[in-house]
């Protein structure tokens, strides 16, 4: 941002009643943020249901029944899909996959983004320039082209292996791995920019100089002194990346590039439901239930991310 706001920050130096660690202080700030705290509970309950329901319910997400495309009833609370599969268990199963994809995809983007940004910011000068130009150029490519090429390339290379050597189940897992890589590969750019900016600011601070004078190597300075200091910012952005990746996966599933049937994610379930809409009849439950779960999940994750940002980084930018 090329301008500074005219607000004055007043630091009230009151004596704290008792010493609080930064973590504890952040936690109490987070708890004071009621919507975010409520969303944390929503997420915990949702996770409990998603993880435990398969053990309680007698329905299976893949078993076919004779009741095709039935609306919600006492035996199938969310109705059934076009192949007669129980939608509730499919939605629960899909949420697990969506969450998994979100977390692993965000994890991949974390590793690439932090390493890239930290190295660029730490080296500075010419290298910083080159590395950040790469980020700029990648920014100006439509990410969808990049993802499609990447995923189809990986699948093309592993085609022999996938069809001949291993079982269909294992092949599904390998495909999911490709999806993680593809999603991570397009969502690390902003993380790299943020980390690079932070590292650049920390690099010239005196504690880094001191450590260098004491003979610490580059790796030690980077991993022991600089990265711990930007953990807060990184965690906040990571939390906001998870819903973004979930959203992107739902888009890829819509294209047929995401999770492959008979596996399901929330996105692929919505896409299935949406393809059944026509003027004669509407299977509204096939869109509404997976869509509501996706929205609740994304709302909760976004609220928690915002809350974490306010708690961990009270001075930080509130945009986004």
């Amino acid at each position: 941002m090329p301008y500074t706001h005219g607000s004055i920050r007043v630091c009230v130096m009151s004596k704290p009643a008792e010493h609080q660690s930064p973590g504890a202080r952040a936690w109490s700030r987070f708890r004071a943020n009621r919507p975010a705290y409520a969303c944390l509970w929503v997420l915990v309950i949702l996770l409990g249901v998603i993880l435990l329901l398969p053990f309680i319910s007698s329905q299976s997400p893949t078993r076919l029944t004779d009741s095709l495309s039935q609306g919600p009833s006492s035996s199938h609370w969310f109705g059934t899909d076009t192949l007669g599969r129980d939608l509730l268990s499919r939605v629960v199963y899909g949420s697990r996959i969506s969450l998994l994809v979100g977390m692993v995809g965000a994890g991949v983007s974390l590793v690439i983004g932090v390493l890239w940004g930290a190295i660029a910011g730490y080296l500075g000068g010419k290298w910083d320039n080159v590395m950040m130009r790469v980020v700029d150029v990648l920014y100006s490519l439509p990410s969808i082209v990049f993802v499609i090429v990447l995923i189809t390339t990986l699948e093309g290379m592993a085609k022999e292996f996938l069809t001949k050597t291993i079982s269909p189940d294992a092949a599904g897992l390998v495909r999911m791995l490709f999806l993680f890589v593809g999603l991570g590969a397009v969502s690390w750019l902003t993380m790299a920019r943020i980390v690079r900016g932070e590292v650049l600011a920390l690099r010239s601070r005196s504690f880094v100089e001191a450590s260098r004078l004491l003979g610490a190597g580059h790796a030690r300075i980077l991993f022991h002194h600089i990265l711990p200091n930007i953990a807060g910012v990184v965690v906040v952005y990571l939390m906001l990346t998870i819903p973004a990746v979930i959203l992107y996966e739902s888009f890829l599933s819509y294209l047929g590039l995401g999770i492959q049937p008979p596996q399901a994610s929330l996105g692929s379930l919505i896409a299935e439901g949406a393809s059944q809409i026509n003027p004669i009849r509407i299977y509204w439950w096939m869109v509404l239930f997976p869509a509501s779960l996706l929205v609740v999940l994304l709302l909760a994750l976004n609220f928690i991310g915002d809350g974490l940002r306010d708690a961990l980084d009270p001075r930080g930018s509130r945009e986004g």
Binding site: P243, F251, A271, A274, V287, A291, L294, V295
Partner: peptide, 9 residues
């Protein structure tokens, strides 16, 4: 939070 995928249908 509500993607086009949901809004549209």
């Amino acid at each position: 939070c509500v993607p086009a995928l949901v809004v549209g249908p």
